[in-house]
């Protein structure tokens, strides 16, 4: 291969003009996070899923401005003959058709996406914050405090989650906030167990001992040394938790206990679509189902990609 003498000369000049005192230019390090990001970017399935998920999120935020219909507005014309006039069409500006009551499905899917994504995100956010702090504290302190903290988690885990949630709904009335509270109360339990286990294995590493020898306070050790080192697992678990949350909400809404009309969610929409399937209005099922499936798959692929990226040893 022929070399370009000009380029070589330029390189030599660049090297020569580097400051002899290496103090003046600080080299950039590549943190483990940056390396993981590069590995993630090379994972095609995960990247496609990430883009798909971003599109769904953007759609659920700005999509309503593209349609003249509101999610609770009834199109009386379409209502008269839903299988014909309520079918998806650009002309009637019901892009996804209408439901049995003549409400625009496009607007309702957007509304449902907002609720479902919110449930997933808030649920896993609570899990991440509470679960990580709780688990790391229990694991680091150890001994009796650990035993006490983890036994209370065991007790809470022994209570059937769905049963409690349904009871809450019945007692305090159906409301989306009840779902947030119920999911938030219980989602952090598994997370705290995982983080406790990780902390136990980290606790005996030499750099934790070094921090103790230096005199770093326990709370600082937890926040500075333990949590950044378990964050990889937290991130992976949190992404895998989101679809679980969405499914729980959908299941409750499918039972008819979740969100209240005229608000809706993916689960509620799928429920309605499934009920009216004999009427020949298949779109009522397919549109919300498509969003639901694409979102869940995206989260699973992203979680998988994150796990591969954050833990290169496992490959």
């Amino acid at each position: 291969m022929l070399l370009n003498p000009k380029k070589i000369q330029q390189l030599a000049q660049n090297l020569a003009s580097l400051p002899p005192d290496e103090n003046s230019s600080e080299l950039k390090g590549r943190s483990l996070w940056q390396l993981a990001r590069a590995r993630f970017a090379r994972n095609r399935a995960a990247m496609i899923s990430l883009i798909a998920l971003l599109l769904i999120v953007i759609f659920s935020i700005v999509g309503s401005s593209l349609s003249p219909w509101d999610h609770e507005q009834i199109d009386w014309d379409a209502m008269a003959d839903v299988p014909m006039l309520g079918a998806p069409s650009i002309q009637s500006r019901h892009y996804f058709g209408t439901d049995d009551l003549g409400r625009d499905l496009y607007a309702r899917v957007i509304q449902g996406s907002q609720i479902s994504l919110m449930v997933g995100l808030i649920g896993s956010l609570i899990a991440v914050v509470v679960g990580t702090l709780y688990g790391a504290t229990a694991g680091y302190l150890g001994g009796r405090i650990d035993a006490l903290m983890m036994r209370s988690v065991d007790i809470l885990l022994a209570i059937p989650f769905m049963f409690v949630l349904i009871l809450l709904m019945v007692m305090f009335g159906r409301s989306i906030y009840m779902i947030f509270i119920g999911i938030g109360l219980l989602s952090w339990l598994d997370m705290s167990r995982i983080i406790r286990g990780q902390t136990l294995s980290l606790k005996n590493r030499e750099f934790i001992e070094a921090a103790r020898a230096i005199g770093v306070r326990p709370l600082t050790i937890i926040t500075r040394h333990i949590i950044p080192n378990v964050l990889g697992i937290v991130v992976v678990y949190a992404t895998l938790l989101v679809p679980g949350m969405i499914m729980t909400e959908s299941f409750i809404s499918f039972l008819g206990l979740g969100v209240q009309e005229p608000q809706t969610s993916w689960g509620a929409l799928i429920n309605e679509g499934a009920r009216s399937i004999q009427n020949g209005t298949l779109w009522q099922l397919l549109f919300p189902l498509a969003f639901f499936i694409v979102t869940l798959l995206s989260f699973y692929f992203i979680g998988d990609g994150l796990r591969d990226a954050l833990d290169p040893k496992d490959q």
């Binding site: 070094a210 230096i214 005199g215 950044p228």
Partner: peptide, 19 residues
């Protein structure tokens, strides 16, 4: 503790990989 410091056996394990 300011007067007392320690150096460890495993050089890499004694440094926090995230810092």
């Amino acid at each position: 503790r300011r007067e007392l410091q320690m150096i460890y056996q495993d050089p890499l394990a004694s440094l926090n990989p995230r810092m």
